[in-house]
Design a protein around this nucleic acid. Structure first.
Lengths: 122, 122
DNA sequence: TCACACCGATTACGGCTGTAGTCAATAGCG
DNA sequence: CGCTATTGACTACAGCCGTAATCGGTGTGA
């Protein structure tokens, strides 16, 4: 069962979710430049993700092609749930209330969320 | 600036947010039993939180009384933002949409959120 | 007064993380 | 055919984390 994916590993996953399969070099090239990683660093992360069964690789000539095994959907769901459980007693409402308090919702956010909710009730 | 609070440290913070000031022993007693921590572990965590300036202590005779410096509100806001930035491009709407997709909103959740939003627009 | 209990401080230690260097095999270049 | 560039595997290493034992000071009940 997929172990926890660390922050740096997550950046690699994002690349593979965006496009796959890719070689290690491709991944290194696509990782956001802000990270400033060496190619070796990316390879290490790929290795760790393999060990965690979050990705798989297949041989392609003398290199490997990497592809995700974990779906982004699932990862995102897990992380969201973790946060909500940890900070909001498992309920989404307090999170929305919290953001509302903080004035972090624009009029458009509100409209969009209302639209989503309306859709749900339909 | 408050450094990052780890998961175990967070459990200690929750206790202090609930009630403070408390002695180390009080904290140890109130930490959720599931953690199964020894009193020493709690003291270590208190020490680390002190080093991170997340809490303060004042002498009270032989011992210290600990109180939070970081507000729960602020911590929660920071963690929420981190998640939303990392996974949802900084916007809340996709998070709500995501949870909606996963059928994780009850009718009551929807009603509550709508009420909050209505309040906001008022 | 004296062994003890209790407290905070210090030290421990294995595992995970971030970041990368080195090694061994090999596929081409010249 | 030998040298070099590439590629994955292995190794490194400091810092944080979870979890705790131990040390040193001291007020206290016997």
């Amino acid at each position: 069962m997929a172990e926890r994916i660390s922050d740096a590993e997550h950046a690699v996953m994002e690349v593979l979710w965006e496009e796959s399969p890719l070689t290690a070099q491709d991944v290194a090239e696509r990782v956001p430049a802000e990270r400033g990683w060496s190619a070796n660093t990316v390879k290490t992360l790929l290795g760790r993700l393999l060990a965690k069964n979050a990705i798989a690789h297949e041989e392609e000539g003398r290199r490997y092609l990497y592809r995700p095994l974990v779906e982004r959907e699932d990862y995102v769901a897990g992380e969201s749930q973790r946060l909500i459980d940890r900070l909001f007693g498992g309920k989404l409402t307090p999170l929305v209330a919290h953001l509302a308090d903080r004035d972090q919702l624009t009029a458009q956010d509100i409209a969009e969320i209302e639209a989503i909710l309306k859709e749900l009730k339909a």
